[in-house]
Design a binder for these strands. Sequence first.
DNA 1: CTTAGTGCAAAACCTTTGCAACTCT
DNA 2: AGAGTTGCAAAGGTTTTGCACTAAG
Lengths: 146, 146
Amino acid sequence: MINIDDLRQKFHDRQYKLTPQRQIILQAFLDNHDKHLCAEDVHNIVRQKYTDIGLATVYRTLEIFSDLDILHKMDFGDGRSRYEINESSNPHQHHHLICLSCGKVKEFEGDLLETLESVISRKSNFKIVDHQVKFYGYCRECQDKC
Amino acid sequence: MINIDDLRQKFHDRQYKLTPQRQIILQAFLDNHDKHLCAEDVHNIVRQKYTDIGLATVYRTLEIFSDLDILHKMDFGDGRSRYEINESSNPHQHHHLICLSCGKVKEFEGDLLETLESVISRKSNFKIVDHQVKFYGYCRECQDKC
DNA sequence: CTTAGTGCAAAACCTTTGCAACTCT
DNA sequence: AGAGTTGCAAAGGTTTTGCACTAAG
């Protein structure tokens, strides 16, 4: 997982400047690596340390981080983009289980799609570089309620 | 795949009214079962037959159809929801290959996730009812261009 | 006739953009 | 000093909502 020094290096390579706003936004993800934060979540977290930060800055920073593969932009169908920090260099590591009742998102570890990807690549001449898998259903707690 | 008579039955059960607008919107999907239409696409198609239909009606109808599992709401990351008609009673039939270069969406037939689903259900106590799988990469045509 | 549905316009959201002031390097 | 960055406010795009009117059952 990325740290501040990696960030400094990556930014230097691309001639981005390392502002306090950007460092604090990264920190927000490091402190919440298990969550799926949206722009507004990030804004609220970051404002506690840096009162005057603007929401536009958050959006601009999230886009840069996504381009640099520091964050992964995702959609869980709630009308806003959510981001999660890339835990490793291999993005194919976990899947999301989305509860249709309470909306919570659980993670499921393990990459069981490698073979499926090679089948698809061969059969349809499509060069796959990433995938996103979402399972919809009911989590343990919501099953108990019924 | 659904037809007008099925629609009549489903609507009757829920006390929805079968208006010409709703029939024409269903017809748009029957005529374009291979496409992934967004609300505006539907509005444009439907307006050719029913000039005065409002975009709000299209949105409201798409939501009803999704609730009734006649349509499937999807997100391909282009900032708007897209819908496709449910070809069968089993929604687990095909996956989407999204080209990162030209944006085209191809379909890949075959349900290779049944076993993965049962593994997940067992290991994480999550009752899966649906899944959505997207593969990102480069289509044949865009690979040739490089 | 009753209830649900429609079209329109306005509102609500999330996200992006223009710009003058500012700040990393 | 200079290029990139910020915050603010305004604009953009999609989707939802309020309301008077209309039409299906």
